[in-house]
Computed example of a mutant assay.
Amino acid sequence: MDIIQHSIAVGKYLVSPLIRHQDDGNFAASVSIRSGRGSGMHDRVMRFTPRFASHAAAARYAVAQGLGWVRERHPRSAPLALPCAG
């Protein structure tokens, strides 16, 4: 089961970590980066190959990668990051 936790609003983007518990006991990390609304919404999902010993470590990695992606494209948006209910 995928879990979205602690989404972060950054400018026009919503960065949400997606963490999956693996059969071997480790955790896989992905991140959703959403922008737009309604029929104009776009959702980019990136899956990562490293595996993590804890849910928290996987979530930190996913958020860092998502924020890095946003910062590369919109450097001025990065300081506006605020946690959202997720």
Score class of each variant (00 low, 15 high):
residue 64 A to W: 13
residue 16 S to H: 10
residue 20 R to P: 00
residue 31 V to C: 09
residue 6 H to T: 04
residue 14 L to K: 08
residue 11 G to C: 03
residue 17 P to F: 15
residue 17 P to D: 11
residue 54 S to T: 08
residue 41 M to T: 15
residue 50 P to V: 10
residue 31 V to Y: 09
residue 49 T to I: 05
residue 12 K to I: 06
residue 66 G to R: 02
residue 19 I to W: 07
residue 22 Q to M: 15
residue 5 Q to A: 09
residue 29 A to C: 03
residue 30 S to W: 00
residue 67 L to H: 07
residue 54 S to W: 08
residue 31 V to N: 05
residue 59 A to G: 00
residue 19 I to H: 03
residue 42 H to K: 14
residue 58 A to G: 03
residue 13 Y to L: 00
residue 71 R to C: 04
residue 33 I to W: 05
residue 59 A to E: 05
residue 34 R to A: 07
residue 69 W to S: 00
residue 59 A to D: 04
residue 37 R to P: 01
residue 33 I to F: 05
residue 52 F to Y: 13
residue 16 S to V: 06
residue 28 A to E: 09
residue 32 S to I: 01
residue 6 H to M: 08
residue 45 V to E: 00
residue 7 S to L: 07
residue 43 D to Q: 12
residue 50 P to F: 15
residue 28 A to Q: 14
residue 38 G to N: 13
residue 31 V to H: 02
residue 59 A to V: 02
residue 28 A to I: 13
residue 64 A to E: 07
residue 25 G to T: 12
residue 67 L to V: 06
residue 19 I to T: 07
residue 45 V to D: 01
residue 39 S to T: 04
residue 28 A to L: 01
residue 62 A to G: 04
residue 65 Q to F: 13
residue 35 S to M: 07
residue 20 R to A: 12
residue 10 V to P: 02
residue 28 A to N: 06
residue 32 S to D: 14
residue 18 L to P: 03
residue 30 S to E: 12
residue 9 A to F: 10
residue 50 P to H: 12
residue 54 S to I: 04
residue 55 H to C: 06
residue 47 R to A: 05
residue 68 G to I: 02
residue 69 W to L: 05
residue 66 G to P: 05
residue 67 L to D: 00
residue 8 I to W: 06
residue 10 V to S: 01
residue 38 G to T: 15
residue 26 N to V: 10
residue 9 A to S: 12
residue 29 A to W: 11
residue 23 D to G: 13
residue 23 D to Y: 03
residue 13 Y to P: 00
residue 54 S to E: 08
residue 63 V to T: 15
residue 61 Y to I: 02
residue 48 F to W: 09
residue 36 G to Y: 09
residue 58 A to F: 14
residue 5 Q to T: 03
residue 46 M to W: 06
residue 43 D to C: 03
residue 53 A to L: 15
residue 24 D to V: 14
residue 50 P to K: 04
residue 16 S to P: 08
residue 17 P to W: 13
residue 30 S to K: 11
residue 53 A to N: 15
residue 27 F to E: 09
residue 25 G to L: 05
residue 50 P to C: 09
residue 63 V to P: 01
residue 66 G to D: 06
residue 8 I to Q: 07
residue 45 V to F: 03
residue 64 A to I: 01
residue 8 I to D: 03
residue 40 G to D: 13
residue 6 H to E: 10
residue 52 F to R: 00
residue 45 V to A: 03
